[in-house]
Amino acid sequence: MVVTWRDRRLIEALADGLPLAARPYAELGRMAGMDEDEVIERIQAMIAKGIITRFGVIVRHHELGYRANAMVVWDIPDDDVARVGEAMADFPFVTLCYRRVRRPPLWPYNLFCMIHGRERETVLEQVEQVARGCGLENARRDILFSLRRFKQRGAIYRRDWPALELAAGTGG
């Protein structure tokens, strides 16, 4: 059991976000049937365990003018991918970086990173910066800009749970 039933009650109370009130954790506690101290401890514990990856504002990239959303994929030798992934994650404009399973021949790529930018040209220049910075000038790569967003919502984790906002593999 990763989360207890009391954590679950708290997660349900948090489904609509943190209340915009002077003492939001006390308010959440009233909704979940626990006191403010317990709410604070449980949220801190979930952050410490990595169950909550981030706690704060969640922006809508597109509405803020970040319309150039690129999934940049690379074919990196398996014995070098950890080094490259770590190096790639250091670029401030890289918002996600994962190693994934390859599906050759159509999909030979094993390293994915996301770059969100206002202009396509800026993003393309940033891809070049990553390639130079990580020594990947000759690596096979592809840039998949998003053309249209069909669906973006809090993902369902359990049918009887509220839709939760997940740190998913691609987005924006």
């Binding site: 989360v3 997660i11 943190l18 990856t53 504002v57 969640i58 803020l64 906002e165 593999g169």
Partner: peptide, 19 residues
């Protein structure tokens, strides 16, 4: 609608789910 929400972002697998 500048912000989707204000609160936590969860890690699906660490919550016990699949992603």
């Amino acid at each position: 609608g500048v912000l989707t929400r204000f609160g936590p972002l969860y890690h699906a697998e660490r919550l016990g789910g699949g992603l």
